[in-house]
Amino acid sequence: MAEYGEWNRKGASLSDVTAKKEYGVDREFIIKGINAGKLEFREGSIYGNPYIKVLRRQLEEYIAEELGKEYLNKAKNRTELRKIKKEIAEVECRLASLKLEKTALERLLEK
């Protein structure tokens, strides 16, 4: 059973599409968990596209139970690595733009 306010907490719930990206589980796996009574869910729709929203905590427990803790840890590490790579790319892009600004300012000061 969900804790009070768990559905409203940031990052505590995720859609079936996000679950596929983060954990590599498909919609059918989530539906199987819902039918087994392991996952609480809410249905929603964005621009006419339906989705299923589940609690992250329950989904992680269900994944560990069905696919193993090793699979869950590997999926979490893969997601974390993807976030870190994205952040590094953003920082490198920002650094490149700052270097251009620096060069432009140095040229102005030389005149």
Rank of each mutant, 00 (worst) to 15 (best):
I34W: 00
L72T: 01
V54M: 02
E66M: 05
E3K: 09
L39K: 02
I34A: 00
L67M: 14
A2D: 02
K53M: 01
E110A: 13
K99F: 03
L14V: 10
Y4T: 08
Q58D: 12
G5H: 11
T18Q: 13
S13C: 11
G48S: 13
A64N: 08
G24W: 10
K53H: 02
T103E: 13
G11W: 03
F41K: 07
E101T: 07
L105E: 06
K76T: 03
K20Q: 13
A75T: 03
I46N: 10
Y51I: 03
K111E: 11
I31T: 09
E101F: 06
L59N: 01
R78S: 08
Y62I: 05
K86Y: 14
L95M: 09
L105N: 02
K20N: 11
G11Y: 05
I52N: 03
L100H: 06
L67T: 05
L81A: 12
A36V: 00
G11L: 06
K86N: 12
K85V: 07
E70G: 00
L100C: 03
E60W: 10
S97M: 13
R78E: 12
R42A: 06
I84E: 05
L55I: 02
E28K: 15
I63N: 14
E92D: 15
E92A: 10
E28P: 07
I52Q: 02
